[in-house]
């Protein structure tokens, strides 16, 4: 899973898709995930990192991850 190359993300949570002209705002966790994806970290790697860092059950994270990915795809932010 890869974020589109030209997607611009900022640390404050803005996302701009130059291919479609759409802009997005992300909360803290979504911003963090996008940054990690940009660094080419694998989904499994990112999830482990998040489970270590946040107070969350694996199944909750799994569900929310899938939802986020579906949204990223829907917004044409994935390759």
């Amino acid at each position: 899973m890869k974020l589109r190359k030209n997607i611009a993300t900022s640390e404050t949570g803005f996302i701009f898709n130059p291919a479609t002209g759409d802009s997005f705002a992300a909360n803290g966790l979504a911003t963090e995930i996008l940054q990690l994806l940009k660094q080419d970290r694998s989904p499994a790697d990112i999830k482990t990192h998040l489970l270590n860092r946040y107070d969350v059950e694996p199944r909750q994270l799994e569900k929310d991850w899938d939802d986020l990915v579906a949204q990223l795809r829907d917004f044409q932010l994935l390759d």
């Binding site: 802009s23 997005f24 107070d55 909750q60 986020l68």
Partner: peptide, 14 residues
């Protein structure tokens, strides 16, 4: 101490 979790959210700017 783990941080408080809030599920990831992406909102399209209207």
């Amino acid at each position: 101490m783990k941080q408080r979790y809030e599920r990831p959210l992406i909102r399209k700017l209207n």
